[in-house]
């Protein structure tokens, strides 16, 4: 941590990110992407000067990630990695997101604890001091869990054997880690 300014930036960016992700319907993100890109193509063709300066949400997300990656600050670079995880959660149909704990969580509370720890690991213990921010992190966590459960059930139904095998495998890895 170089100085207070960069810490404040990290926190502020995280704050803003929190708001952005909160307002994002994780489950619908994939579906809306195709629609979004086709609308944007049309926009380009019709664009007038007056709204030509409006930055799309996708570019804003890119800006946030770029700001973190280029900061030269490990804390913010960790934040960028966290954004990568979010991206994975949104895009990849998977039980596991950058951690065995979350994939193995059997109930919401277990998952939320793992999620909270993962975020704090990435950003540092200082995050816990900001009550508002922690509340937002929990809210996002709840949304992810809801999504996760939806996918989990689907996987179970679609391929019972594979699902059980993957659970055993994850459990084994976790035991090794201990």
């Amino acid at each position: 941590m170089k100085n207070n300014g960069t810490i404040r930036f990290s926190m502020a960016v995280l704050l803003v990110c929190g708001c952005v992700f909160l307002s994002t319907d994780l489950a619908a993100a994939e579906k809306s992407k195709a629609a979004s890109s086709s609308v944007q193509k049309n926009d380009t063709a019709k664009k007038t000067k007056a709204t030509g300066n409006v930055i799309s949400k996708e570019d804003l997300e890119k800006l946030t990630t770029t700001a973190m990656e280029k900061s030269g600050n490990p804390l913010m670079q960790a934040g960028s990695k966290w954004l990568g995880w979010i991206d994975k959660i949104k895009k990849v149909n998977s039980l596991v997101w950058d951690g065995l704990q979350a994939g193995l969580a059997t109930n919401e509370q277990e998952f939320l604890t793992a999620w909270e720890n993962a975020v704090v690991d990435a950003f540092g213990e200082g995050v816990r001091k900001n009550k508002w921010l922690m509340e937002q992190i929990r809210k996002i966590g709840k949304e992810i869990w809801a999504w996760h459960m939806k996918e989990d059930k689907k996987l179970k139904e679609n391929n019972k054997e594979d699902y059980e095998r993957s659970q055993k495998f994850l459990q084994g890895l976790l035991n090794l880690g201990r």
């Binding site: 100085n3 207070n4 300014g5 930036f9 809306s32 930055i55 949400k57 946030t64």
Partner: peptide
């Protein structure tokens, strides 16, 4: 602190841009 101040400037610009970005929402 110049970098710290610019970080806050960026947050302000980002908020303005985020509100405008609603216009590009599908």
């Amino acid at each position: 602190d110049s970098d710290g101040m610019f970080a806050d400037v960026t947050v302000n610009a980002y908020l303005n841009a985020k509100l405008l970005a609603e216009l590009k929402d599908p």
